[in-house]
Design a protein around this nucleic acid. Structure first.
Lengths: 143, 143
DNA sequence: TTCATTGCAAATAATTTGCAATCGG
DNA sequence: CCGATTGCAAATTATTTGCAATGAA
């Protein structure tokens, strides 16, 4: 049997069950990040939410994302460049091959990393979180 | 036959040949970063150089590191946390395991990535540049 | 001499925090 | 009603930049 409502609605209910209050700001931010295909920044979320809720503030976006991260709905990464990237954990994990010749971005399957993950666990006893990776190099056309 | 002088001295000569002026600040910063076993931050370098040259400024450290990066002596990475990490390219390439529990950074051998590199080449015809990687997860103490 | 380089102070830019007002449960 | 949550403004933090003074070649 399937729980009722959209993904965002169920996540909101789940937040409520965790003891958090459901404010319009939180609901809109939650919807925005869960509907994003890719990763989003605080600025992306701020702009998107502002269309429906012009009074939103940046602090609320940051504080809500911190909350959603702690609640396990999103990951928060800094890939360099000095801003956080948020990514729904629900989405299938995938990785990017970025060609430094032509800039093309291709996706890679998760299972390419299985051997690496196993090796890091075996040799370093390190439980790697390989959920979102960017790999630079040269694609077939450019090499 | 071997070129004369220490590594830092040879690097300094090489900088000079590239058309850069050799100031005491640059020489001290160069020595500091080349002698570092691990990666260093601008703050590390600033503190270290200040002991021998109290007048040094942060801008000079940043500008010099930018120069050394362009000249190919160091790599400049942002592993998250919003500050640059500098690393001498002379040293063997290695990668970082960053524990999201305690923040500890451990080093990994290059050869852990050999299988990944081979797989990306075979399956995606992608020539990956795996020279400096950051992998997040949990270390043995925290998992 | 002459222009690259420096130090200082001010500017950024993204994020965090203190605090009084507000609103969800 | 009451404390969690918000918006605002100010604080932080790491880095960058403008500019006049300095010093390497």
């Amino acid at each position: 049997m399937m729980a009722e409502g959209t993904i965002a609605e169920r996540a909101a209910r789940s937040l409520h069950d965790l003891g958090y209050r459901l404010t319009p700001q939180r609901i809109l931010i939650l919807e925005a990040v869960l509907e994003s295909d890719d990763h989003v920044t605080a600025e992306d979320l701020f702009e998107q939410v502002k269309r429906r809720y012009p009074h939103i503030s940046f602090s609320t976006v940051y504080r809500t994302m911190e909350l959603l991260r702690d609640a396990g709905f999103v990951t928060q990464t800094d890939l360099g460049g000095g801003h956080w990237q948020y990514h729904p954990v629900e989405k299938a994990t995938h990785h990017h091959l970025i060609c430094q010749g032509c800039g093309t971005v291709a996706e890679v399957d998760q299972n390419v990393f299985d051997s690496l993950q196993a090796e890091l666990s075996d040799r370093y006893n390190f439980d790697a979180t390989l959920t979102h990776f960017a790999i630079f190099g040269r694609c077939s056309a450019c090499r």
